[in-house]
Amino acid sequence: MPRETEAATVTEQQVDRDHDGPFAVTLRSTSEAVRRTLALITEHFAGSVPDAELGMLEMVLAETLNNVVEHAMSGNARGQVKLRILCRNGGLDCTILDNGLPMPDGEPPRTTLPEIGRMIDDLPEGGFGWSLIRMHVRDLEYRRQDGINVLRFLLPLTEMADT
């Protein structure tokens, strides 16, 4: 068991910049690992992606990765998540793989923004995530393949050469 714990710590986040394109990372399904991953991504794309669009990328990945941690893995920190980002098709082509539970309806939720009424007590405290994701990405695809969730989308960029 100690060996396994050690290995889990070491593999918690492995940046692999040689395979599969400009950015690939494997992380454990924890909020801490998501935070560290976002910091790595911001560092990786700073300079090549304009600040505002980098902010959108960070937001979209925060929402998608935290959804995996909170829903697909439902708090199980031993799940594994893989993220790959390629620069192509006029944007950042993102793929997220995880070995958690499938999406309940076999597709990403088609939520719209929660209603905001005038009563403070009725203000929504959640339900923003998928709306924010869908506002920013296109070509959103989800499939379940051999027990793995595969989520893929393109974050269009105004200025970015294909690599």
Partner: peptide, 16 residues
């Protein structure tokens, strides 16, 4: 410099 949907929900909860 960063608030995600959980953070936004937390701020709304504080307001409430």
């Amino acid at each position: 410099n960063f608030v995600d949907s959980s953070g936004l929900g937390a701020i709304v909860a504080v307001m409430k």
